[in-house]
Each structure stands twice: as C-alpha cells, then as structure tokens.
Design a protein around this nucleic acid. Structure first.
Length: 789
DNA sequence: ATATCCGAGATTTTT
DNA sequence: TCTCGGATAT
C-alpha cells in the first residue's frame, strides 16, 4: 500500500484518496484533520497533479506554516501555494490591482490604521456621527464588507441610526482608501471577490490554474470567502473543505455557519467524509463535550467516539471567590509539578475574557509556577515599529496619506497641527496626496519661510530613504532610523525609550534574517506585506515549559493534557453580551465545546460563588451550560472554601411549582437527588459540597426559568403569579443600592436587568430590560422594583 | 508639546 | 477597578 495511506484509518483514507469533485470533511475535534489535508496534498502530487495547481487556504499563518512544514516532509521539494486567505488575496490583488482601482504597490492597513483613516474622513467631511465611535463604525463597515456589500451598494436599514451614519461614512472611507491606494483586511477579500465576479476571463483563468483548492476551518469562512471559493471551483469543482460546524466561534467576525451547513446543497455531487473518531481526549471528556454540544440546534450531527481510556471524571468546582479559584488551580499545578508527576507545559487555563486572567496570573506568580499568557499585543503593532515602517510604507506608496501623517512629525520636528491642516487643505483642493502637497510647500499660501523649510527638510528625508529603497531591507530600515532622527530621539534612558530602542534593534535583526532568506535587495514591499499580515502572536512557543493562559478563542486548534476552564458562570460563559438571538447563545456553547475538547486527560471547570468584577462584588450564577452536561461523568466539588457561610438567599432553594418546562424540572430533580444519594454517610464534607453545588445549579435553573437573565436564555416567560411570588420574597432597599447590570424583580413585569442608571436618592432612575415587556424607565424610589438577590 | 484630569466604557480578535 | 481617549492647562 501507498506509504501515505498506511497510517490512516478508513475514513481518513477515503478523504485523502478523493481525487476529483467536491469533498466535505466533517472533522470532529482531535480527529486528525491536519493529517488528512497534508496527506491529501502529498497524495495528489504523487498521483501526478502539478503542485502549482494546488491551492490550500487557512485562516492563520500558524496553521499555514505548520501545514507547509508537514507537506514538505511528505512531499519534499514540491511547493504548493499554501497560505492564509488574506495573503492569497494580497497576492492576487498585486497582480490585478488596476482592475479594482489600486496601484500594485498598495498598502495594507491594519485595524488601527483603518480606524484612524475613518477618524480622518469623519473630520474632513464633517460627518455627524451621532457619537458612534470610529471603532464602532469600522466594525459595521467591516461587517458589511464581509457580507460583500460594497460602499455604493450599502443601504441604511430603517430604524437603525448606526446604519444611517455608516451609509455616509463607508463610501467616504472607501474613497479615501482608494485615493491612498490602500486596503484594509476586509478589502483583501472583497476586492478579490469582486474581481472574480466582474471579470469572467480572470475567473476562468484562475479557476483553471488552481485546479485543486483546499480549505481548512471552512466553518469560519464568511460570505466573501465563500464567493471567492465558488469562483475558483466552478469549471473545476475540486473544492475540498474541512471543518467542524461545532467549532465555529467567529460568527461575530462575519463567519457564516451556513457555508458549511449548506455545502452539500451548493455542491450536490459532494463526497462527505466524517471523521468522528477522536484521538485526543478521554471518553469522559468527550462525552461531556458531546452532550453539551448536543443542545445546539444549528449543527450537523456527529457521533464522536474514542478508543482512549475512560479517564478521570471531569471536575466541576464551586469556589467561594475568584481568588480561591485561582490559588487552588495554581496550587494543584504546583503540587503535581513538585511531585514530578507533571510539568508546567502540561497545563492550560482558559477563560472567556482577558480580564479574568488577572487573578490567575497573580496566583501563578505567588505559587512560583511559570506561565505564559497568550495575548494579541503584536510586535508589528507596537508604536515604534509602526512609526519606523511607516516611512518605508510612504516611500513604497507615496499616496499613503496615513503614513505621511504618521511620519511628518515623528519624531517631533516642529511641524504642528496648523501646518498639517494647511497641507491637508492644499492637498484636498488639488486632489493630490499629502506628500505631493508637501513637495510644493514653498508655494503654499500662509507658510512662513521657516515652516516651508521644515516641511522641505522632511521631504528630503523621504527622498533619502527612497534612494536606498532597492537595497536590502536592513539597509532601508537603517537609513530610516538615521535620516529621520528616530533613533536619536530615543536617546533618554527612561524605561520606555530603552524599551523602544530594544524593539527597534529587534526589528533590524528581523530584517537581517529576512534579507538572508530573500537575497538580492528590493524586497522591502515583500517585507512590509509580511509585517502587515503576519502577527507575532505566532510567537507563542510550545518549547518552553510553562503553563499556558489564554482565552477560549485562542485555544482553538490546540491541545493540552490538563485543562482548566474558569468562570463558567452565567454572564461570562455564555457572555452577557450575547444578544437575544439564539444563534449567539449557540456560538457561546460552541466556545465551551472548543474549550472542553482541548483537554486530553483531565478537565476541570469551575466557577466562583462571588466574583469581583469591575470593582463590584457580585454573587454569580453558574453557567446554564453546566446543566447541559452529563452529571454522571462529572465530579462536583465545593472545596473547603465553599463551606463558608453565606447570606441566606431566598432563591437558593429548589422551586416547587409544577408549572413550566418539564426538562428544567427534570434537571432540578436530577441535581437534588444526586446530591443526596452521593453521600454514603462516609464523607460529610463532600456531601455538603455537593449540596452547595447542587443548590447553586438549582438557583441558576430557577433564574433561567423565570427568564431573569432577560432574554439571554430561550426559556419561557414567567407567569404573573410567579413574578409576584418571587418578588414578595425580596427585601426592599434604598434606590442607591441599584447597580448597572443588576438583576431585579418587579411585581408586575417580573424579572429584569438594569441597563442604565441616572440620578441619586429619590431622583434615581433606572432603565430596566424586562423579560416580558421590554425596556422601561423607572423612578426607583416610587417603584416596587427590588434587587433579585 | 507635554502633563494631568476626568469620564465613559469595559467580549472574543484568525487577517 | 482599570484603561483609554479627549479636553484642558501649563
């Protein structure tokens, strides 16, 4: 048998040997998906397909690099085009720039550049943004672009103020980008999609050229990517995609789950391969994950299974507060490492939001456990790096006004706001880029001799850099540092300057390495492109022996022997900002699923009974997801700390009304019964612990059922009687006790959540989102509204 | 041009 | 509680 197929299972083999026609590989977590892709590439090559006819697309550089490496092992010396979608888009756009109104030397703006540009556009055109931040507007524009809605097609939705502003800003922003010969990340896809759509001959040529297209993480593709892929696999429909609808966690970035759910409809002749065998996790971990995700409606059924051992029970722990949670986790890790049973790199701690990492970090430090946090502060996004590269950017693309504005007075050379204003005005009037306006400084009205001289000196700097532009990257950057005076400006020995200097040194080192790999000079554009599209989050190293701390999103695609997921609480996971749309709740559930399935041997989920968040201590509600997990695979622990007495909570008892949703009642009974039956008389503490955990879960169930989470859950609305009953159990309080985000109860409207507050004392008013009647503005002193807990 | 003060707002972030 | 950005003061 072919050596490429030897180590594969039957379904894997079926996918690898699939030659012509569309292919959908539904790959569960840990099912060897990357192997399938890389082996298929190698297999195609071995069957005589030219490597240049194969195109493989991923979402991250990390994934692309990893695959490239593995393909190189399987098929040495045969390079296929394997890159991220965006890089592929950039490559095509450089070739076909003119078709979409760009210069081939266009600049790629990152998110902050885009935001900056939007800001400038708003100022220049004096657009009334109704207080929507540039950030918010960019998000909306980005969403539109992901949906393939161009600036001139964009229509405001009636009733949406935001969209009305966007309708004004989007075309202006897009015009600015084109005038600057720049694109944002979304344009890299949008322009390509448009290009392929509008130019049949180019589409046909590329379709034929990229005869075999493969896509990883297909569940994360957006509309633009979908259209590009369709265009490239129409005459030669050899599109092979792999993905897992259950791991789609980027819906908020425009990913359209329907792309994968409806793949079979789009390509009727598709061959579907399911990789359901998991090689990663224990049976118990897998069953917990499987049962949880089974609560999603929008999915494709998969039967996950594994030959791995049962493993230990998944732990669910209720801690008294976040510090106990953090210290206990740190202590567990410290102890196992000290005993020599484990090493730090075996562990990972996941959280829903970055803000939750604090207590964990602190505890790790105190326990002396080495750890690394994976966070998106990227090297190329640092100010000093962007400053320096902006000079190169401007020389490479003289129309790049953004780069001009960034560099004109950085380092400071006495060119102030007024001067820039005049330049901008002049440029605007003549329809020329800022750099060109600067070249005409001597002719500009209102410029003193001194001002004009300063501007001329700046232009001189740009020209000096341009003179060496065809040399090595290191030389170009070196010239920037000297000519611009940037390096000299970092002369002080305060920490920040020193730090920046060090980063710049690092940049030079990086440039030198780049030059070695790309000899011959004149490669600055390629270098810039790399700086725009490669982020240094990829520098998370698996080599060093440290505990990994990261968000659930960042965890996708990784695996660890032991995983902790913290703050599995209502409002955190699922996050409180998920809207009323059930799809968003399902995405949160998938996020939990992703987290769980990262674990190979052990998994601990935990919540804190009280948590300090944004300065306020709040009692938490355990995540409703916990109630969707199989109790019999789990071990519920309160730990010492959970035994501390806490205030009587009227909701903290199982509700005994028999109305409403059966499944909830079943869950309640289930929990209660188990908490009692588990105590076999031996371990008293344990019994109490279970009791507390169960009671907490019960509270959550009661809340969820009452709809107290105000639209978060899909549960039915409470009856009037229920609302009144709940309400009467609650104490009356002073108006000033009410806080933003607080869950409250109203005798008539039932439970609700405070979304806004104003005034104090008897003037204190609250805007409350009720589950039943929507938003109401209420004067607290005159109302019977009470805190729910 | 820089210091500092206040208020608003505070998910996730492959590119 | 913390952080970022804008506005104001020096």
């Amino acid at each position: 048998m072919n050596h490429l197929l030897e180590s594969l299972t039957e379904p894997q083999r079926a996918a690898v040997t699939h030659h012509e026609g569309p292919l959908l590989v539904l790959a569960g977590p840990g099912s060897g998906k990357t192997r399938v892709i890389t082996h298929r590439i190698a297999y195609l090559i071995e069957s005589g397909v030219e490597p240049s006819q194969i195109l493989a697309l991923t979402f991250t550089n990390k994934a692309a690099d990893e695959m490239q490496r593995r393909v190189a092992e399987l098929a040495p010396g045969r390079r296929v085009w394997l890159s991220t979608f965006h890089r592929f888009g950039a490559m095509l756009l450089r070739r076909y720039a003119e078709y979409v109104g760009l210069e081939p030397n266009f600049t790629i703006y990152d998110t902050s550049d885009a935001r900056q540009t939007i800001k400038r556009v708003i100022e220049a055109r004096e657009i009334n943004t109704l207080n929507y931040s540039p950030d918010r507007l960019h998000e909306a524009i980005s969403a539109a672009k992901n949906k393939l809605i161009t600036a001139d097609e964009y229509q405001p939705r009636s009733g949406s103020m935001l969209s009305r502003v966007v309708a004004e800003v989007y075309p202006a922003y897009q015009a600015k980008l084109l005038a600057s010969s720049a694109v944002d990340f979304d344009d890299l896809l949008l322009h390509v999609a448009k290009l392929l759509y509008e130019h049949a001959e180019i589409r046909a040529e590329l379709d034929a050229r990229y005869r075999y297209v493969m896509v990883d993480e297909y569940q994360d593709t957006n509309r633009a990517q979908y259209v590009i892929l369709r265009a490239l696999s129409s005459d030669y429909p050899n599109l092979a995609v792999t993905g897992d609808p259950d791991q789609s966690i980027y819906g908020w970035r425009g990913a359209d789950l329907n792309n994968i759910l409806e793949f079979e409809r789009d390509y009727p002749s598709v061959k579907v391969v399911r990789l359901e065998r998991n090689y990663r996790s224990t049976k118990r971990i897998l069953r917990v994950a499987d049962e949880l995700i089974g609560h999603n409606l929008k999915r494709k059924r998969k039967d996950l299974w594994t030959e791995n051992g049962e493993g230990t029970a998944v732990r669910l722990i209720a801690y008294i507060d976040q510090d106990k949670e953090a210290t206990d986790i740190a202590e567990q890790i410290r102890a196992s490492v000290a005993e020599g049973k484990r090493q730090p790199s075996d562990y990972a701690v996941f959280y829903r939001v970055n803000a939750l990492s604090r207590s964990i970090e602190k505890a790790m430090r105190n326990a002396g456990v080495p750890f690394q946090m994976v966070r998106g502060q990227e090297f190329f996004a640092r100010k000093e790096i962007k400053d320096v590269l902006a000079y190169c950017q401007l020389v490479n693309n003289p129309r790049d006004d953004m780069a001009f504005e960034r560099t004109i007075n950085t380092p400071v050379r006495g060119i102030g706001r007024k001067t820039i204003e005049r330049l901008t005005e002049h440029a605007y009037r003549h329809g020329i880029p800022l750099l060109e306006a600067a070249r005409a400084a001597w002719q500009i009205e209102g410029f003193s001799k001194g001002t004009a001289a300063k501007v001329a000196a700046y232009v001189e700097i740009i020209d000096r850099i341009a003179a060496v532009f065809h040399g090595d990257v290191e030389e170009v950057i070196g010239t920037v540092l000297e000519a611009s005076g940037y390096k000299a400006s970092l002369g002080s020995d305060d920490e920040q300057d020193q730090n920046r200097l060090a980063n710049i040194e690092e940049l030079l080192t990086d440039a030198r390495q780049f030059d070695e790999q790309n000899p011959g000079g004149g490669q600055i554009e390629a270098y810039l492109e790399r700086s725009w599209l490669v982020n240094e989050t990829d520098n998370w190293d698996t080599e060093t022996d440290k505990v990994t701390l990261m968000t659930l999103h960042a965890a996708k695609g990784l695996e660890f022997p032991i995983v902790f997921i913290v703050a599995v609480e209502d409002g955190v996971l699922p996050h409180e900002r998920v809207g009323q749309h059930p799809d968003e709740l399902e995405e949160e559930r998938r996020l939990a699923f992703v987290g769980i399935t990262r674990a190979k041997e052990e998994l601990q989920m935990s919540y804190a009974i009280t948590r300090d968040f944004r300065g306020v201590r709040r009692r938490t509600i355990p995540s409703s997801f916990l109630m969707e997990m199989p109790r019999n695979e789990m071990e519920m622990l309160g730990g010492e700390e959970a035994f501390d007495p806490h205030p009587f909570d009227p909701w903290d008892t199982p509700s005994d009304d028999d109305e409403g949703d059966d499944s909830w009642d079943f869950q309640l009974e289930d929990v209660t019964t188990e908490s009692v039956s588990t105590g076999d008389g031996a371990d008293n503490k344990r019994q109490t612990a279970l009791g507390i955990a169960a009671a907490a879960l019960t509270t959550a169930a009661a809340l969820a059922r009452a709809g107290a989470t105000a639209g978060l859950s899909s549960s039915a609305s409470p009856s009037r009687e229920q609302a009144a009953a709940v309400h009467s159990a609650l104490p009356r309080v002073s108006p000033d006790v009410f806080k933003q985000g607080m869950i409250v109860a109203h005798p008539e409207y039932g439970p609700g959540k405070i979304v806004a507050l104003s005034g104090s004392g008897k003037n204190r008013r609250a805007t409350i989102q009720f589950a039943t009647v929507g938003q109401k503005k209420i004067i607290l002193a005159h109302s019977a509204v009470r805190p729910a807990r």
